[in-house]
Design a protein around this nucleic acid. Structure first.
Lengths: 144, 144
DNA sequence: TAAATAAAGGACAAATTTATCCTTTATTAT
DNA sequence: ATAATAAAGGATAAATTTGTCCTTTATTTA
């Protein structure tokens, strides 16, 4: 469904959000350990997230990554996916056709539309903030 | 969502089904032309589909690929996806966790479950036969 | 039986994704 | 100012996916 890079991006964003909620800024090492991802690769992904203003990055001693508390309830899961994988997974044709529409549909168009719209609705309505709540309460997990 | 190989596999299967319905056996060249896919790569994919008994392959003059008319209404789209990409896209965790369950859920578990179950239901209930109908009536298309 | 046809399969190549390493830049604290 | 810290970024490598080429095998027809 999503690329590995995108999976890491989602996990990292949620983890940073949770830590920001607890008033903690988190470093790359901590993040990649918590989400069980390769450090240098995760760094690249965090750079993309920072460029897309999904996370804030702070250089130097006591630096790290953070997400503004007010902002995290506005950031949608779709924005993270868009930044890393693009929007084709939740907007494109299921068979990869460039020109696929109700007028000129692929064979799975109607059936797939239902699923894709459900996915899109979920991604565009779910916030990073709500996904971080489970980590706070210990009800959700980022690895295994 | 699906790999390119899987997209080609789905298109090829539907095309072969349609042609089988018209009483025609189709060759690799014809298939890859119709679904706009690289010929040799498509050959590999067709081999996988044949090994998984999704299509029949016949060697020699007047050979090609076919799907038994009785069988194509029993073959589900999920079987094609399973043969090429495996079942993780419609059964696995959205964040790629190996151990993700209601008991130990990832942060997107509940939200993603709705989408994944919808996808699974669609793939497991949709037959190759019904997907081939649109080609016959000219209402659906395999390229562009 | 021989020639022609078409898929199967092996070996290889290109492209993309995933991953690593090392240097540079920005920031903080001493 | 200097040293220490941590992210940014460039170069490169490994792994996987996608794609190509050529030989082998099975089958049909002449």
């Amino acid at each position: 469904m999503f690329s590995k890079a995108c999976e890491y991006a989602i996990k990292a964003t949620i983890y940073i959000a949770d830590q920001s909620n607890r008033g903690r800024r988190v470093g790359l090492k901590d993040i990649s350990k918590q989400i069980a991802s390769p450090e240098a690769f995760t760094a690249k992904i965090l750079q993309q997230l920072a460029r897309n203003q999904i996370v804030d990055s702070i250089k130097g001693p006591n630096g790290g990554f953070a997400i503004d508390s007010g902002k995290m309830s506005k950031i949608k899961l779709s924005q993270v996916v868009l930044a890393i994988d693009g929007d084709s997974v939740y907007k494109g044709c299921g068979l990869g056709l460039k020109e696929c529409s109700a007028k000129q549909p692929c064979p799975v168009h109607e059936k797939f539309k239902v699923v894709r719209d459900e996915l899109r609705k979920m991604l565009e309505s779910t916030t990073i903030w709500e996904l971080s709540l489970g980590l706070k309460t210990g009800l959700t997990f980022l690895h295994r």
